[in-house]
């Protein structure tokens, strides 16, 4: 799976495959160019545990990077990193 190229371990990929159904994985595959870009952006931004974030909130990875940048720009960087690393459900409030 292309997630491996993004540094995800087999265990992390298995956890994602186990949590989500095949339709979700299908859409992920269809958008893999976008998912790649989001992962790179989040890493560069400072989010520490990307696989955990995908496991909790896969919907974040469907957004184009331009939308995520726009969204994050409205908050303090540290609070975004802290929120996504510890309480990804807060993403709903950011939308």
């Amino acid at each position: 799976m292309f997630l491996k190229n993004n540094g995800f371990t087999d265990e992390e990929i298995d956890a994602i495959l186990n949590k989500y159904d095949s339709d979700t994985i299908d859409t992920l595959l269809l958008n893999q160019d976008n998912v790649d870009e989001v992962i790179t952006y989040l890493k560069d931004y400072g989010i520490k545990n990307i696989p955990k974030l995908m496991l909790e909130r896969i919907d974040i990875f469907y957004f184009p990077v331009s939308s995520i940048k726009k969204l994050f720009s409205q908050y303090e960087k540290d609070s975004v990193i802290n929120a996504l690393d510890h309480n990804s459900a807060i993403f709903d409030e950011m939308l």
Binding site: M1, L17, Y20, D21, S22, I25, D26
Partner: peptide, 14 residues
């Protein structure tokens, strides 16, 4: 969804 998750189906690329 429960059954789909168990069967995984095409999602299991490995």
């Amino acid at each position: 969804d429960q059954r789909k998750k168990r069967n995984k189906g095409p999602a299991d690329d490995s």
